[in-house]
Design a protein around this nucleic acid. Structure first.
Lengths: 205, 205
DNA sequence: CCCAGTCTGGACTTGCCGGTCCATTTTACT
DNA sequence: AGTAAAATGGACCGGCAAGTCCAGACTGGG
């Protein structure tokens, strides 16, 4: 019960809403604003998103969450050498440098997160997926002998996700990207300092 | 031109606004909601905050920013031994554990930051003050010989602020505190791993 | 060609919320 | 006590934006 034309319109609405949010911020985003931008009418919005604005915003958030991870590929899925880690680091910084002060996802989440359990779950999923990819990368480095096996891969991955997130928040609210860079670099320095050869005293597995 | 009674009312309004935001979130905060909670009338709000809602929210943000740093004392101002660093770490985690999913400051900033330059500046100031305190702590450790002098204190301090910020954001949007803990612990582990004795190969100043 | 379901346009309703206004009361100062 | 300034209450306004409705235009299968 959704023709090709209908699916296209639905997609267009999500796309337009994301653009509107990027430009105006979540608080200033109105349905009318999205309408004008996408050349649709209000009935379309409610036709494709019966739950109204909230459902639409949630759909936008879901799409943006996917984008966040996609934009880190192919590096994120390929972490296994210091070279790939560096490439990934640069990709993350570049992605957020381009995005600048607008984070459709972050705002949606802090806006909807409190009220909508679905939004909270969406965020949790994104964090989990992100963290899992980083964890796999760390474990691969451990298997290769580049990082001490004593490092808690999961916990460290969680720390890296948090560090990035914090850097992005500071970027959004102050316009400075240095914190994101410093956070990433410091985390990378920690990983490198955890090379087995650097800590010969450790003998536990 | 502000009697004792007036000052008290003004304080009460800010207090009530902060409480309302904590409970409802910024988006759902209305002047009427604050009015009911503080037993004031709308004319008071505009009497004490001629700039209207925006000025009030900014005042709340300024107050909350101060609280953030105050709540880390006396530890934050006293970082000089691993013991004090650990105490500070615990204080931060505890502070945000108590605060839970509500961050009046973070929301105000992401909400106002984009539109109001004053809010952006406020955030930048908070970040700077926070970072300066951490930097002083790191430098004290370096002077004491507990941390390698080759560590960039300013940059590392920036990374720590970002890590905390990210942990808090994730706490707010998912309810999980583990990322904040992991981020702090990993940063601490990095600092400890940078003890001069651990890297005898470094000879540059 | 037709008809059932889908899609679209836009006028309309509804309610909320920021902001204004003015009349009244309280405070502070001499 | 008196008066000017500050503080307070609450009615009122205006606009905006979410959501509703219905009439009409497309689409696709039989």
């Amino acid at each position: 019960m959704l023709t090709a034309k209908g699916a296209a319109t639905r997609r267009r609405i999500i796309e337009g809403a994301a653009a509107e949010i990027r430009e105006m911020g979540v608080a200033a985003t109105t349905l009318d604003g999205i309408l004008g931008r996408t050349a649709t009418s209000k009935s379309q919005v409610f036709h494709y998103f019966p739950g109204g604005k909230e459902e639409l915003l949630l759909a936008v958030a879901a799409r943006e969450a996917d984008r966040v991870l996609e934009d880190q590929e192919p590096h994120l899925g390929d972490l296994g050498t210091w070279q790939t880690w560096d490439a990934w680091r640069d990709a993350v910084v570049e992605r957020y440098r381009r995005q600048g002060v607008n984070c459709p996802l972050g705002l949606l989440v802090t806006e909807l997160g409190r009220t909508t359990p679905a939004a909270q779950q969406l965020t949790a999923q994104l964090v989990d997926r992100w963290q899992a990819a980083l964890r796999a990368g760390i474990e691969r480095m451990q298997v290769a002998g580049a990082i001490d096996a004593a490092v808690d891969a999961g916990r460290t991955a969680a720390a890296i996700v948090a560090a990035i997130q914090g850097g992005v928040v500071i970027l959004m609210s102050t316009g400075r990207i240095i914190h994101l860079e410093a956070a990433l670099d410091t985390m990378m320095a920690f990983l490198r300092s955890a090379a087995p050869t650097d800590v010969p005293g450790h003998d536990e597995e």
